[in-house]
Simulated assay, not measured.
Amino acid sequence: MSALIAIQPALAERLAGLAMQVLIDEADLSPKPGLVDRRGNGAHRDLHLGLMHASARSLWPTFSAMAEAAQAEGQVSQALREAVGRLGREGETEMLRVTGGVNTHRGAIWALGLLTAAAALEGNTSATAIAMSAAALARLEDPAAPHNPNSHGARVCRRYGVPGAREQAQHGFPAVIEHGLPQLLTSRRDGAGEQNARLDALLAIMSQLTDTCVLHRAGLKGLNRMQQGARAVLDAGGAASLAGRRQLRELDRDMLALNASPGGAADLLAATLFLDRLAPATTTNGSN
């Protein structure tokens, strides 16, 4: 691990700015099935694009503080895990203040917080190395973390026996490293255009993820439709193709009818864009 011994405020600010920007980029990306985007509120009654932007901006100090904490500690440690947890909870409190109590980015604070801290530790390296460092941090217990067995995510994981956001992080973000990033790079190389490449990356994540947000809102029926529909778009040629767009419209229609919003996949798309921006136009192992 190439730990950074001296605190570099400019690096912390750059990483925080990047984390904030990818949240805005994710929100703006359109058309996303069931999600808030430039067209409207998706399957949500309490969210809109302006609120998503305000929430993202409110988290800049949180991500900056996490990066600074990682630089100060210099390695994955129990102390850093507890600092990241504390800063994340403080960031969530500020987010909820800004949004009037609406949960806009709780999952993103977890995923991007870990990745921001890991990026501050790892420096200029591969996406896989940053994800593995974040995973090592996520596997450490935070004694101060509140235990809420009745949260939506916890209840869904128990009911369906599926992993959630915690396990995704603890295993090194496989939805990002094995699906989101490879699809993003492939679609770019195929000339899809940046917005379509990002949509394809989201769909690649959706096609594999057991999204607890969808399970909470629409059960297994919603999850199966999300996964199968996302794969159908990609199999038809992706978001850049006419056939793929038709499949995407059908998926969006069905997700809205099911009141299903793939918020977990959206958080992981933001993580995908974060890692991509740290090492653009490279594969996940750092080779060209």
Rank of each mutant, 00 (worst) to 15 (best):
L234E: 15
R106V: 05
R57H: 12
P174S: 14
A118M: 04
V214I: 14
L202H: 15
A3E: 04
A10P: 00
D190V: 00
G101N: 07
S241F: 02
G34V: 04
L185T: 07
T99M: 04
A232L: 12
G74F: 03
A3C: 02
L23P: 07
V36Q: 12
R166S: 03
H179N: 13
N259P: 00
L202Q: 14
S55Y: 12
T282M: 12
E94G: 01
D267E: 08
G113N: 06
S287N: 12
S187A: 15
L121W: 08
Q78G: 06
G191E: 04
R277Q: 14
I130Q: 07
I130P: 03
A169R: 08
R14A: 14
R81M: 07
L269C: 11
S64T: 07
R188S: 07
A117H: 09
G244H: 09
P146C: 04
A3K: 06
G42R: 11
D211S: 08
E141K: 04
L258N: 02
A144P: 00
P9L: 08
G40F: 07
A117C: 09
S77T: 05
S30C: 13
A131R: 10
A165N: 05
F274H: 14
L278R: 08
A204D: 12
A260F: 07
L185S: 10
V233E: 15
I177Q: 07
P262H: 11
D211E: 11
A243P: 00
E94Y: 02
I7S: 06
G91Y: 08
M226V: 02
R158W: 09
L248S: 05
